[in-house]
Amino acid sequence: MTERVLGVFETPADARRAVRELVNAGIPRQNIIICSTEPMLDPEFLPVEDRKTRMSLWAIVGAILGCAIGYSLPVTAARLMGLASGGQPIVSLWAFAIVIFELTALGAIGGTVITFFREAGLPERPRAIPSAEMARTFVDAGLIVGVSGDRMETIEIADRLLREAGAREIEHQR
């Protein structure tokens, strides 16, 4: 039975303190929940191991794939049609270069977007973290720090630590 406790914070300093306290209390990082309405990327919120992303790599892979399609599409189409036009060679790379470029860029965009959705875990349904009531406070306050766990005592410790760190509102979820 997984339970969750969430606390709304108003300042990044309080939230950071809360996260530090939770970690000191021995709560594993992957059980700590953080949400913010602005990018909050300090080491307390986003540890180094979570910063590893393959987005650039997949953008390049997408670009290479796009480049290959961008080359083969016009070349194959022109060969299949086999019609001469304007004294140009049937396969004219000068003219096809633009198609190659556009599809390369399209591939890079596709690679980036797909990787973004995969790595960010989106789209996600239903949205998991705060309840509707709590979300209302959260959006104006700006930060949520919470803990999920299946042991009652962990949740109780977290509840206490969050209150001590200055949480404005606490919510328990089952």
């Binding site: 049609m81 019609l83 001469a84 036009s85 304007g86 004294g87 140009q88 003219a95």
Partner: peptide, 10 residues
Amino acid sequence: PVCPVYATYH
């Protein structure tokens, strides 16, 4: 060459 659909060709 400017015809996008090869409606005119040689």
